[in-house]
Simulated assay, not measured.
Amino acid sequence: MDQPADDYDTPWKDAVMRYFREFMAFYFPQAHDTIDWRQPPSFLDQELAQVVRDARLGRRRLDKLVRVTGRDGEARTLYIHIEIQRSRERDFAERIFTYHYRLYDRFHSPVSTLVILADPNPGWRPDCYRYDTHGCETSIIFPVVKLLDFWPHLDRLLTSHNVFALLTAAHLMTLRTRGQDQQRFEFKAMLTALLYERDWNAQRVLDLFNVLDWMMKIPGHLQDRLAERIDELNRSKEMPFENLMMKMAREKARKEGLQEGREEGREQGREEGRRAVVHKLLQLRFGPLPQHAEQFLAQAQPAELTALEDKILLAASLGELIQPKH
């Protein structure tokens, strides 16, 4: 059966609205520092929708328009247009230009257009639009953050306490595991475990788990396994919201597992694929592996790989999992 379609629209939108200050601090720190955060931002969905209709550009589900207050002496009102683009688009830069001038025309106030490129194409990096006619030049240059650029820094994402570091890691892992259910399950379980390690309140953990769960689709029988690991985490961390977390995970399993569960006996990957997943997870948790660990993994039998998969997220050290031979 086909893997459930990946859905970035709603989780990204919800995360931006709930944790907008962290969004700005992580992706656009210079712009973040110009905002007076004592004044709450206002999200102008209806106003942006009107601009889109006027421009006849179609429905844009990943656009956000935010009104903020600047930190300068005049405490002036500023408008931030955020675009999270998840696929390559031929006329993307021109559309950004159209949005920009229509927003300025609507509010007669400075507008900052900030772009997140969440697409899987490394070479696609539009950051400007311009034309020159009869000596009259018009142009826009807009800041761009390419999420693919964070992949070499995955270890930093996983240790950061910014919400969007973890969500960026989830996005990258989702892209890297299309069609690889077992590997995606391991990454999703690891990210869920990291939520518990942060000193975050229960609501924030639930919010982010909902984003991860929505973004990183896995078949129902693997979702059941994730629910079991969440249960272990709840017991080990004595979390006060066990029932809700379990309800979310198990409900997801019931919805998605009606058909996938019939294929539960199907092998989810060849042995070498599982070995590579375990190797990657061990490196992410504990850093470069010593020689005795590399040798153990190279010779590990399926039962030993399964044992590592079940314990890797809860182990405090590599020594709890793999002992050197004497």
Results as ranks from 00 to 15, higher is better:
3 Q>W: 06
3 Q>Y: 08
4 P>F: 09
9 D>R: 06
9 D>P: 00
17 M>F: 07
23 F>T: 08
28 F>C: 11
34 T>E: 14
36 D>V: 05
39 Q>A: 13
40 P>L: 01
42 S>R: 15
46 Q>A: 15
50 Q>C: 07
50 Q>M: 11
53 R>Q: 14
54 D>A: 14
54 D>E: 15
55 A>G: 06
57 L>D: 03
60 R>N: 12
63 D>M: 09
65 L>V: 07
66 V>I: 14
68 V>G: 02
69 T>L: 01
72 D>Y: 10
73 G>V: 07
77 T>S: 12
77 T>N: 04
80 I>N: 05
80 I>H: 10
85 Q>N: 03
86 R>A: 13
87 S>G: 07
93 A>S: 15
93 A>Y: 06
96 I>M: 13
98 T>E: 08
102 R>M: 02
103 L>V: 02
110 P>W: 00
110 P>Q: 02
111 V>Y: 00
115 V>D: 02
117 L>E: 11
123 G>A: 11
127 D>Y: 12
128 C>A: 14
132 D>C: 07
133 T>C: 06
135 G>R: 04
136 C>I: 12
139 S>H: 11
140 I>R: 14
141 I>F: 08
143 P>I: 03
143 P>G: 06
144 V>T: 03
146 K>H: 02
147 L>C: 01
148 L>I: 05
152 P>M: 00
154 L>I: 15
156 R>S: 15
158 L>Y: 04
158 L>D: 10
159 T>K: 10
161 H>E: 14
165 A>S: 15
166 L>W: 02
172 L>D: 02
172 L>S: 00
178 R>M: 08
180 Q>W: 05
185 F>W: 10
186 E>R: 14
187 F>D: 04
188 K>M: 02
189 A>F: 00
195 L>M: 09
197 E>F: 02
198 R>A: 09
202 A>N: 08
204 R>C: 10
205 V>I: 14
208 L>F: 09
208 L>W: 07
209 F>T: 01
214 W>G: 12
217 K>M: 11
218 I>E: 07
218 I>S: 06
221 H>Y: 14
224 D>K: 13
224 D>I: 11
224 D>F: 08
225 R>C: 12
225 R>A: 12
228 E>N: 11
231 D>A: 02
231 D>G: 03
232 E>V: 10
236 S>I: 13
238 E>A: 13
238 E>W: 04
238 E>T: 07
240 P>T: 09
246 M>C: 04
249 A>M: 01
252 K>N: 15
252 K>I: 04
252 K>D: 11
254 R>C: 01
257 G>I: 02
261 G>K: 11
262 R>W: 14
262 R>T: 06
264 E>M: 08
265 G>K: 09
265 G>M: 08
265 G>Y: 03
267 E>S: 12
267 E>W: 09
271 E>C: 05
276 A>Q: 14
279 H>R: 15
281 L>W: 06
287 G>F: 04
289 L>G: 11
291 Q>E: 14
291 Q>W: 05
296 F>D: 01
297 L>K: 10
299 Q>W: 00
301 Q>E: 15
302 P>F: 09
304 E>W: 05
304 E>K: 08
305 L>I: 12
305 L>N: 12
308 L>D: 09
309 E>F: 04
312 I>T: 10
313 L>Y: 13
316 A>I: 01
319 G>T: 12
323 Q>I: 07
323 Q>G: 02
323 Q>K: 14
